[in-house]
Nucleic acid binder design. Structure first.
Length: 411
DNA sequence: TCTGGGGTCCTAGGACCC
DNA sequence: TCTGGGGTCCTAGGACCC
Protein backbone atom coordinates (compact mmCIF):
# COMPACT_ATOMS: atom_id res chain seq x y z
CA UNK A 1 0.00 0.00 0.00
CA UNK A 2 1.44 3.34 -1.01
CA UNK A 3 1.71 6.16 1.45
CA UNK A 4 0.35 9.00 -0.63
CA UNK A 5 -3.16 10.35 -0.43
CA UNK A 6 -5.74 9.86 -3.14
CA UNK A 7 -7.87 12.94 -3.62
CA UNK A 8 -10.60 13.43 -6.19
CA UNK A 9 -12.03 16.72 -7.34
CA UNK A 10 -15.54 16.60 -8.78
CA UNK A 11 -16.73 19.46 -10.93
CA UNK A 12 -20.28 19.52 -12.30
CA UNK A 13 -20.37 20.48 -15.95
CA UNK A 14 -22.35 23.63 -16.73
CA UNK A 15 -24.18 23.02 -13.48
CA UNK A 16 -26.98 25.60 -13.49
CA UNK A 17 -27.67 25.09 -17.18
CA UNK A 18 -27.68 21.31 -16.76
CA UNK A 19 -30.15 21.53 -13.88
CA UNK A 20 -32.44 23.68 -16.00
CA UNK A 21 -32.23 21.31 -18.95
CA UNK A 22 -33.01 18.43 -16.66
CA UNK A 23 -36.07 20.19 -15.28
CA UNK A 24 -37.38 21.24 -18.66
CA UNK A 25 -36.87 18.65 -21.43
CA UNK A 26 -37.58 21.26 -24.08
CA UNK A 27 -34.29 22.92 -23.21
CA UNK A 28 -32.22 19.79 -23.71
CA UNK A 29 -29.79 19.81 -26.55
CA UNK A 30 -30.31 23.54 -27.04
CA UNK A 31 -28.12 26.55 -26.43
CA UNK A 32 -29.34 28.05 -23.15
CA UNK A 33 -27.94 30.58 -20.73
CA UNK A 34 -28.83 31.07 -17.08
CA UNK A 35 -29.08 34.74 -16.17
CA UNK A 36 -30.26 36.98 -13.34
CA UNK A 37 -33.64 38.61 -13.36
CA UNK A 38 -32.43 42.21 -13.67
CA UNK A 39 -31.78 44.19 -16.76
CA UNK A 40 -28.08 44.60 -16.23
CA UNK A 41 -27.48 40.92 -15.79
CA UNK A 42 -24.74 38.73 -17.20
CA UNK A 43 -24.48 35.08 -18.18
CA UNK A 44 -24.06 32.95 -15.06
CA UNK A 45 -23.71 29.62 -16.86
CA UNK A 46 -24.37 28.45 -20.38
CA UNK A 47 -24.99 25.00 -21.78
CA UNK A 48 -22.30 23.33 -23.88
CA UNK A 49 -24.52 23.82 -26.91
CA UNK A 50 -24.25 27.57 -26.28
CA UNK A 51 -20.53 27.53 -25.54
CA UNK A 52 -19.91 26.21 -29.04
CA UNK A 53 -21.03 29.61 -30.29
CA UNK A 54 -18.71 31.43 -27.95
CA UNK A 55 -21.17 32.22 -25.17
CA UNK A 56 -19.16 32.68 -22.00
CA UNK A 57 -19.79 33.21 -18.30
CA UNK A 58 -19.76 36.89 -17.44
CA UNK A 59 -20.89 38.06 -20.86
CA UNK A 60 -23.57 40.72 -21.05
CA UNK A 61 -26.87 39.46 -22.42
CA UNK A 62 -26.77 41.52 -25.59
CA UNK A 63 -23.26 40.30 -26.31
CA UNK A 64 -24.37 36.68 -25.96
CA UNK A 65 -27.25 37.25 -28.36
CA UNK A 66 -24.83 38.67 -30.86
CA UNK A 67 -22.72 35.52 -30.96
CA UNK A 68 -25.69 33.17 -30.63
CA UNK A 69 -29.02 34.63 -31.83
CA UNK A 70 -31.03 31.50 -31.00
CA UNK A 71 -29.81 31.49 -27.39
CA UNK A 72 -32.55 30.73 -24.86
CA UNK A 73 -32.37 32.68 -21.60
CA UNK A 74 -33.47 31.10 -18.34
CA UNK A 75 -33.69 33.15 -15.16
CA UNK A 76 -31.76 31.31 -12.47
CA UNK A 77 -33.35 29.85 -9.37
CA UNK A 78 -30.83 29.43 -6.58
CA UNK A 79 -33.04 27.20 -4.50
CA UNK A 80 -33.19 24.63 -7.25
CA UNK A 81 -29.41 24.58 -7.55
CA UNK A 82 -28.80 24.52 -3.82
CA UNK A 83 -31.17 21.63 -3.42
CA UNK A 84 -29.63 19.59 -6.24
CA UNK A 85 -26.16 20.42 -5.02
CA UNK A 86 -26.72 19.25 -1.49
CA UNK A 87 -28.21 15.98 -2.68
CA UNK A 88 -25.16 15.37 -4.86
CA UNK A 89 -22.82 16.20 -1.99
CA UNK A 90 -24.74 13.81 0.27
CA UNK A 91 -24.31 11.12 -2.31
CA UNK A 92 -20.55 11.53 -2.28
CA UNK A 93 -20.57 10.88 1.45
CA UNK A 94 -21.54 7.31 0.62
CA UNK A 95 -17.94 6.80 -0.50
CA UNK A 96 -16.02 8.69 2.19
CA UNK A 97 -16.80 10.97 5.10
CA UNK A 98 -14.04 13.27 3.86
CA UNK A 99 -16.04 15.49 1.52
CA UNK A 100 -15.02 19.12 1.26
CA UNK A 101 -17.60 21.26 -0.51
CA UNK A 102 -15.75 23.97 -2.38
CA UNK A 103 -18.67 25.65 -4.08
CA UNK A 104 -22.17 24.83 -5.18
CA UNK A 105 -20.86 22.65 -8.02
CA UNK A 106 -17.45 21.46 -6.83
CA UNK A 107 -16.09 19.24 -4.10
CA UNK A 108 -12.98 17.36 -3.11
CA UNK A 109 -13.17 13.90 -1.62
CA UNK A 110 -10.34 12.00 0.03
CA UNK A 111 -10.73 8.37 -0.98
CA UNK A 112 -7.41 7.08 0.36
CA UNK A 113 -9.17 4.80 2.80
CA UNK A 114 -12.14 3.96 0.59
CA UNK A 115 -10.26 1.71 -1.80
CA UNK A 116 -10.49 -1.42 0.34
CA UNK A 117 -14.26 -1.26 0.11
CA UNK A 118 -14.92 0.23 -3.31
CA UNK A 119 -11.90 -0.84 -5.34
CA UNK A 120 -9.76 1.40 -7.50
CA UNK A 121 -9.98 5.19 -7.75
CA UNK A 122 -11.27 4.78 -11.32
CA UNK A 123 -14.08 2.59 -10.13
CA UNK A 124 -15.12 5.10 -7.47
CA UNK A 125 -15.03 7.86 -10.06
CA UNK A 126 -17.23 5.89 -12.43
CA UNK A 127 -19.67 5.00 -9.66
CA UNK A 128 -20.05 8.65 -8.74
CA UNK A 129 -20.38 9.74 -12.35
CA UNK A 130 -23.00 7.12 -13.03
CA UNK A 131 -25.06 8.02 -10.00
CA UNK A 132 -24.99 11.75 -10.69
CA UNK A 133 -25.95 11.11 -14.28
CA UNK A 134 -28.71 8.72 -13.35
CA UNK A 135 -30.24 10.73 -10.52
CA UNK A 136 -29.78 14.23 -11.84
CA UNK A 137 -29.02 13.95 -15.55
CA UNK A 138 -25.82 15.89 -15.01
CA UNK A 139 -22.32 15.03 -16.17
CA UNK A 140 -19.23 15.91 -14.20
CA UNK A 141 -15.49 16.01 -14.67
CA UNK A 142 -13.40 14.21 -12.09
CA UNK A 143 -9.71 14.67 -11.42
CA UNK A 144 -7.80 12.27 -9.21
CA UNK A 145 -4.37 13.10 -7.81
CA UNK A 146 -2.23 12.98 -4.66
CA UNK A 147 -3.55 16.32 -3.40
CA UNK A 148 -6.27 18.95 -3.81
CA UNK A 149 -4.28 21.32 -6.00
CA UNK A 150 -3.50 18.63 -8.55
CA UNK A 151 -6.93 17.02 -8.36
CA UNK A 152 -8.50 20.34 -9.26
CA UNK A 153 -6.02 20.82 -12.07
CA UNK A 154 -6.89 17.35 -13.36
CA UNK A 155 -10.66 17.88 -13.32
CA UNK A 156 -10.13 20.97 -15.46
CA UNK A 157 -8.21 19.06 -18.09
CA UNK A 158 -11.12 17.22 -19.62
CA UNK A 159 -14.58 18.72 -19.98
CA UNK A 160 -17.31 17.76 -20.13
CA UNK A 161 -17.67 14.31 -18.57
CA UNK A 162 -13.94 13.84 -18.03
CA UNK A 163 -11.82 11.61 -15.88
CA UNK A 164 -8.13 12.36 -15.50
CA UNK A 165 -5.82 10.63 -13.08
CA UNK A 166 -2.48 12.14 -12.14
CA UNK A 167 -0.13 9.62 -10.58
CA UNK A 168 2.62 10.84 -8.27
CA UNK A 169 5.30 9.75 -10.72
CA UNK A 170 3.69 11.82 -13.50
CA UNK A 171 3.49 15.09 -11.61
CA UNK A 172 6.77 16.73 -12.59
CA UNK A 173 6.47 15.79 -16.25
CA UNK A 174 2.93 17.16 -16.37
CA UNK A 175 3.77 20.43 -14.63
CA UNK A 176 6.90 21.13 -16.65
CA UNK A 177 5.01 22.83 -19.47
CA UNK A 178 1.75 23.63 -17.69
CA UNK A 179 0.97 27.37 -17.79
CA UNK A 180 0.92 28.85 -14.28
CA UNK A 181 -2.56 30.30 -14.63
CA UNK A 182 -3.98 26.78 -14.74
CA UNK A 183 -3.25 26.54 -11.02
CA UNK A 184 -6.10 27.40 -8.67
CA UNK A 185 -4.88 30.46 -6.82
CA UNK A 186 -3.00 32.15 -9.63
CA UNK A 187 -5.25 34.63 -11.35
CA UNK A 188 -4.74 37.23 -14.03
CA UNK A 189 -2.77 39.76 -11.98
CA UNK A 190 -0.45 37.21 -10.46
CA UNK A 191 0.11 35.65 -13.84
CA UNK A 192 1.18 39.05 -15.15
CA UNK A 193 3.55 39.60 -12.24
CA UNK A 194 5.14 36.20 -12.69
CA UNK A 195 5.34 36.62 -16.46
CA UNK A 196 7.29 39.81 -15.90
CA UNK A 197 9.77 37.73 -13.96
CA UNK A 198 9.99 35.44 -17.01
CA UNK A 199 8.03 32.71 -15.27
CA UNK A 200 5.42 31.15 -17.53
CA UNK A 201 5.16 27.48 -16.63
CA UNK A 202 4.73 25.57 -13.40
CA UNK A 203 8.12 24.01 -14.05
CA UNK A 204 9.73 27.44 -14.10
CA UNK A 205 7.80 28.54 -11.02
CA UNK A 206 8.85 25.47 -9.08
CA UNK A 207 12.51 25.99 -9.93
CA UNK A 208 12.59 29.69 -9.10
CA UNK A 209 14.76 30.49 -6.10
CA UNK A 210 12.58 31.03 -3.08
CA UNK A 211 14.09 34.39 -1.99
CA UNK A 212 13.32 35.86 -5.38
CA UNK A 213 9.67 35.00 -4.91
CA UNK A 214 9.33 35.87 -1.23
CA UNK A 215 11.00 39.22 -1.79
CA UNK A 216 8.23 40.13 -4.21
CA UNK A 217 5.24 38.29 -2.78
CA UNK A 218 6.01 37.77 0.90
CA UNK A 219 4.68 34.60 2.49
CA UNK A 220 2.77 33.78 -0.67
CA UNK A 221 6.02 33.49 -2.64
CA UNK A 222 6.87 30.31 -0.82
CA UNK A 223 3.42 28.90 -1.44
CA UNK A 224 3.57 29.73 -5.16
CA UNK A 225 6.88 27.92 -5.48
CA UNK A 226 5.41 24.81 -3.86
CA UNK A 227 2.39 25.06 -6.12
CA UNK A 228 4.73 25.11 -9.10
CA UNK A 229 6.14 21.83 -7.81
CA UNK A 230 2.69 20.37 -7.32
CA UNK A 231 3.00 20.35 -3.55
CA UNK A 232 -0.12 20.90 -1.49
CA UNK A 233 -0.44 19.45 1.98
CA UNK A 234 -3.78 20.95 2.84
CA UNK A 235 -6.20 18.28 4.02
CA UNK A 236 -9.61 17.56 2.58
CA UNK A 237 -11.60 18.98 5.45
CA UNK A 238 -15.33 18.43 5.64
CA UNK A 239 -17.55 21.21 6.89
CA UNK A 240 -17.53 21.07 10.64
CA UNK A 241 -20.29 22.33 12.85
CA UNK A 242 -17.95 25.03 14.03
CA UNK A 243 -16.93 25.97 10.52
CA UNK A 244 -18.24 29.47 10.67
CA UNK A 245 -18.90 32.07 8.02
CA UNK A 246 -16.88 35.19 8.53
CA UNK A 247 -19.09 37.73 6.82
CA UNK A 248 -22.57 38.14 5.44
CA UNK A 249 -23.12 40.58 2.62
CA UNK A 250 -25.38 41.55 -0.18
CA UNK A 251 -24.78 43.83 -3.10
CA UNK A 252 -26.57 44.76 -6.25
CA UNK A 253 -26.04 46.58 -9.46
CA UNK A 254 -28.85 49.08 -9.69
CA UNK A 255 -31.24 49.07 -12.59
CA UNK A 256 -30.16 52.61 -13.32
CA UNK A 257 -27.39 54.67 -11.88
CA UNK A 258 -28.67 56.79 -9.01
CA UNK A 259 -27.57 60.02 -7.36
CA UNK A 260 -30.53 61.08 -5.23
CA UNK A 261 -30.10 60.28 -1.56
CA UNK A 262 -33.72 59.20 -1.38
CA UNK A 263 -33.17 56.57 -4.10
CA UNK A 264 -29.97 55.35 -2.50
CA UNK A 265 -31.75 54.87 0.81
CA UNK A 266 -34.40 52.68 -0.77
CA UNK A 267 -31.75 50.33 -2.01
CA UNK A 268 -29.88 50.40 1.28
CA UNK A 269 -33.05 49.36 3.07
CA UNK A 270 -33.45 46.37 0.78
CA UNK A 271 -29.83 45.37 1.15
CA UNK A 272 -29.92 45.74 4.92
CA UNK A 273 -32.94 43.48 5.08
CA UNK A 274 -31.23 40.82 2.95
CA UNK A 275 -28.12 40.94 5.12
CA UNK A 276 -30.03 41.03 8.37
CA UNK A 277 -32.25 38.14 7.47
CA UNK A 278 -29.36 35.96 6.41
CA UNK A 279 -27.40 36.87 9.54
CA UNK A 280 -30.36 35.93 11.69
CA UNK A 281 -30.81 32.68 9.86
CA UNK A 282 -27.15 31.85 10.54
CA UNK A 283 -27.66 33.03 14.09
CA UNK A 284 -24.82 35.49 13.93
CA UNK A 285 -24.53 39.14 14.64
CA UNK A 286 -21.68 41.45 13.77
CA UNK A 287 -20.27 44.73 14.85
CA UNK A 288 -18.67 45.97 11.65
CA UNK A 289 -20.77 47.22 8.74
CA UNK A 290 -19.14 47.90 5.39
CA UNK A 291 -20.81 50.01 2.77
CA UNK A 292 -19.52 49.44 -0.72
CA UNK A 293 -20.19 51.83 -3.59
CA UNK A 294 -19.25 51.38 -7.21
CA UNK A 295 -19.65 54.46 -9.34
CA UNK A 296 -21.12 54.94 -12.78
CA UNK A 297 -17.75 54.72 -14.53
CA UNK A 298 -17.54 51.08 -13.31
CA UNK A 299 -13.92 51.43 -12.20
CA UNK A 300 -13.98 53.80 -9.27
CA UNK A 301 -15.35 52.54 -6.00
CA UNK A 302 -15.28 53.13 -2.28
CA UNK A 303 -15.58 50.73 0.62
CA UNK A 304 -16.07 52.29 4.01
CA UNK A 305 -16.69 50.53 7.27
CA UNK A 306 -17.86 51.37 10.73
CA UNK A 307 -17.25 49.27 13.79
CA UNK A 308 -19.80 49.54 16.56
CA UNK A 309 -19.57 48.78 20.22
CA UNK A 310 -22.46 46.30 20.04
CA UNK A 311 -23.13 43.28 17.89
CA UNK A 312 -26.18 43.73 15.69
CA UNK A 313 -28.24 41.70 13.22
CA UNK A 314 -31.57 43.53 13.05
CA UNK A 315 -32.21 44.96 9.61
CA UNK A 316 -33.04 48.42 10.86
CA UNK A 317 -29.85 48.63 12.93
CA UNK A 318 -27.83 47.60 9.88
CA UNK A 319 -29.70 50.11 7.78
CA UNK A 320 -29.11 52.95 10.20
CA UNK A 321 -25.38 52.21 10.33
CA UNK A 322 -25.15 51.99 6.55
CA UNK A 323 -26.90 55.32 6.17
CA UNK A 324 -24.52 56.80 8.73
CA UNK A 325 -21.58 55.69 6.59
CA UNK A 326 -23.23 56.95 3.42
CA UNK A 327 -23.54 60.39 4.95
CA UNK A 328 -19.77 60.59 5.45
CA UNK A 329 -19.12 59.87 1.78
CA UNK A 330 -18.40 62.25 -1.03
CA UNK A 331 -20.22 61.09 -4.12
CA UNK A 332 -18.38 62.44 -7.17
CA UNK A 333 -20.74 60.79 -9.66
CA UNK A 334 -23.85 58.60 -9.86
CA UNK A 335 -23.80 55.18 -8.24
CA UNK A 336 -23.90 51.97 -10.19
CA UNK A 337 -23.69 49.35 -7.43
CA UNK A 338 -24.37 49.29 -3.71
CA UNK A 339 -23.30 46.66 -1.20
CA UNK A 340 -23.75 46.12 2.52
CA UNK A 341 -21.70 43.61 4.46
CA UNK A 342 -21.66 42.53 8.08
CA UNK A 343 -18.30 41.32 9.44
CA UNK A 344 -16.61 40.84 12.78
CA UNK A 345 -19.18 38.20 13.50
CA UNK A 346 -20.21 36.59 16.70
CA UNK A 347 -22.15 33.37 16.84
CA UNK A 348 -24.84 33.12 19.41
CA UNK A 349 -27.57 31.03 20.73
CA UNK A 350 -30.46 33.39 20.42
CA UNK A 351 -31.79 34.53 23.74
CA UNK A 352 -34.78 36.67 24.27
CA UNK A 353 -34.30 40.04 25.81
CA UNK A 354 -35.74 40.77 29.19
CA UNK A 355 -37.20 44.01 27.96
CA UNK A 356 -40.70 43.56 26.56
CA UNK A 357 -40.18 46.16 23.83
CA UNK A 358 -37.11 44.44 22.44
CA UNK A 359 -38.65 41.04 22.87
CA UNK A 360 -41.67 41.98 20.83
CA UNK A 361 -39.44 43.24 18.05
CA UNK A 362 -37.26 40.13 18.05
CA UNK A 363 -40.32 37.93 17.88
CA UNK A 364 -41.89 39.95 15.11
CA UNK A 365 -38.69 39.83 13.07
CA UNK A 366 -38.45 36.11 13.62
CA UNK A 367 -41.99 35.60 12.38
CA UNK A 368 -41.31 37.69 9.27
CA UNK A 369 -38.13 35.76 8.60
CA UNK A 370 -40.04 32.50 8.78
CA UNK A 371 -42.54 33.65 6.18
CA UNK A 372 -39.85 34.97 3.89
CA UNK A 373 -37.73 31.86 4.16
CA UNK A 374 -40.70 29.83 3.13
CA UNK A 375 -42.28 31.93 0.43
CA UNK A 376 -39.48 34.02 -0.95
CA UNK A 377 -37.72 37.28 -0.27
CA UNK A 378 -39.74 40.34 0.62
CA UNK A 379 -43.05 38.54 0.95
CA UNK A 380 -43.46 40.43 4.18
CA UNK A 381 -41.29 43.28 5.28
CA UNK A 382 -41.26 46.56 7.07
CA UNK A 383 -43.90 49.01 5.90
CA UNK A 384 -41.41 51.55 4.61
CA UNK A 385 -40.01 49.08 2.14
CA UNK A 386 -43.40 47.96 0.90
CA UNK A 387 -44.19 51.52 -0.01
CA UNK A 388 -41.38 51.78 -2.53
CA UNK A 389 -41.95 51.04 -6.15
CA UNK A 390 -38.72 49.07 -6.16
CA UNK A 391 -40.46 46.35 -4.22
CA UNK A 392 -40.69 43.33 -6.42
CA UNK A 393 -37.70 44.03 -8.57
CA UNK A 394 -35.74 41.24 -6.94
CA UNK A 395 -38.58 39.00 -5.99
CA UNK A 396 -38.90 35.53 -7.31
CA UNK A 397 -42.60 34.89 -6.87
CA UNK A 398 -43.35 31.52 -5.30
CA UNK A 399 -45.68 30.72 -8.17
CA UNK A 400 -42.83 31.04 -10.58
CA UNK A 401 -41.00 28.19 -8.97
CA UNK A 402 -41.26 25.01 -11.00
CA UNK A 403 -43.22 22.03 -9.75
CA UNK A 404 -41.55 19.57 -7.52
CA UNK A 405 -39.71 21.83 -5.16
CA UNK A 406 -42.51 23.76 -3.54
CA UNK A 407 -42.55 21.50 -0.56
CA UNK A 408 -38.86 21.58 0.02
CA UNK A 409 -37.96 23.40 3.15
CA UNK A 410 -34.98 25.43 2.08
CA UNK A 411 -32.88 26.35 5.03
C1' DT B 1 -28.13 48.21 -23.21
C1' DC B 2 -21.14 47.11 -22.12
C1' DT B 3 -19.30 44.66 -17.93
C1' DG B 4 -23.18 39.96 -11.45
C1' DG B 5 -22.85 38.60 -6.78
C1' DG B 6 -21.40 35.52 -3.00
C1' DG B 7 -17.38 35.03 -0.38
C1' DT B 8 -12.09 34.44 1.64
C1' DC B 9 -7.50 35.92 2.68
C1' DC B 10 -3.57 39.19 2.70
C1' DT B 11 -1.22 43.73 3.29
C1' DA B 12 0.00 48.10 5.03
C1' DG B 13 -0.56 51.92 7.90
C1' DG B 14 -2.43 54.16 12.08
C1' DA B 15 -4.21 54.24 16.92
C1' DC B 16 -3.65 52.69 21.30
C1' DC B 17 -2.02 49.96 25.21
C1' DC B 18 1.47 48.06 28.24
C1' DT C 1 15.21 64.31 25.68
C1' DC C 2 16.97 59.59 21.68
C1' DT C 3 15.21 56.72 18.11
C1' DG C 4 11.85 51.14 21.87
C1' DG C 5 8.89 47.66 20.65
C1' DG C 6 5.34 44.03 20.71
C1' DG C 7 0.41 43.00 20.47
C1' DT C 8 -4.19 44.04 19.05
C1' DC C 9 -7.74 46.34 16.79
C1' DC C 10 -9.27 49.08 13.05
C1' DT C 11 -9.51 50.78 8.12
C1' DA C 12 -8.97 50.69 3.08
C1' DG C 13 -7.84 48.27 -0.78
C1' DG C 14 -6.49 44.39 -3.69
C1' DA C 15 -6.31 39.59 -5.42
C1' DC C 16 -8.48 35.45 -5.86
C1' DC C 17 -12.14 31.79 -6.10
C1' DC C 18 -16.80 30.10 -7.75
Amino acid sequence: MSNHRIVAHIDMNAFFASVEQQHNPELRGKPIAVVGSHERTVITTSSYEARKFGVKTGMAKWEAVRVCPQLIFVVGDNRKYTYTSSRIMDMMRDYTPLVEVFSIDEAWIDITHSLSIFGTPERIAYLIKARIKESFGITCSIGIAPNKLLAKLASDMQKPDGLIIIKPEDVSRLLERMPINELCGIGKKMQRHLNMMSIYTCGELGRCEEPRLTKKFGILGRIYRQMGQGIDNSPVSPMEEDDEVKSVGHSMTLRQDVSKREDILKYLLQLSEMVGRRARRYEVSGKTITLYVRFADFYSSIGKQDTLRNYINQSDDIYRTAVGILDTLELPMPIRLLGVRLTNLQYHTQQLSLFPEERRKTEMVRAMDAVNNRFGDFTVTFGSLLATEEKGSHVIPPSWRPDGIRNIDVQ
